[in-house]
């Protein structure tokens, strides 16, 4: 059982690290800072979740797992906040995006889909 958990955990760590790696590639390839933020912050949280979960499986029910959970909570709280801070700094200082003009779609625009559909589409 523990052996299997070790393998699953290790696999999760590898997937997490691959996710992070892909994110890093995205940060290199995307054209401007706004799009790069997407690549970095998402894969950071996703990669961290998977990798820490994997480590948690490896260590089993030990004090270390609690610490891992702590780290995870920290990362989940701080990474989006930091991404927000950064995007806000860039936007607020008038930094221009390379592609995709900053045409703002207003919230009062007519709805294209009904709420039920929106529920699904938001998660893709």
């Amino acid at each position: 059982m523990t052996e299997a958990l070790h393998w699953i955990g290790g696999g999760l760590v590898v997937i997490g690290s691959l996710l992070t790696l892909f994110g890093a590639v995205g940060v290199l390839r995307f054209p401007d800072v706004y799009t790069r933020i997407h690549a970095a912050s998402l894969t950071d949280t996703g990669g961290a979740t998977l990798a820490l979960l994997g480590l948690g499986l490896i260590s089993g029910l030990t004090p270390e797992t609690l610490k891992l959970a702590f780290i995870w909570a920290f990362v989940m709280l701080t990474t989006p906040a930091a991404a927000n801070a950064l995007a806000n700094a860039a936007y607020g200082s008038g930094h221009k995006p390379r592609i995709g003009a900053f045409q703002i779609i207003p919230s009062d625009a007519p709805r294209e889909t009904d709420p039920e559909d929106a529920d699904r589409s938001s998660s893709q």
Binding site: F22, V25, P31, T43, P97, I99, I104, S107, S123
Partner: peptide, 23 residues
């Protein structure tokens, strides 16, 4: 569920993204 979408864009063709700002 949706991490995949972004990863596809990372490896996809260079300008397969269409960013916009939503209010």
């Amino acid at each position: 569920k949706s991490n995949v979408a972004v990863i596809a864009r990372v490896w996809g063709p260079r300008h397969d993204i269409d960013p916009a700002m939503v209010s």
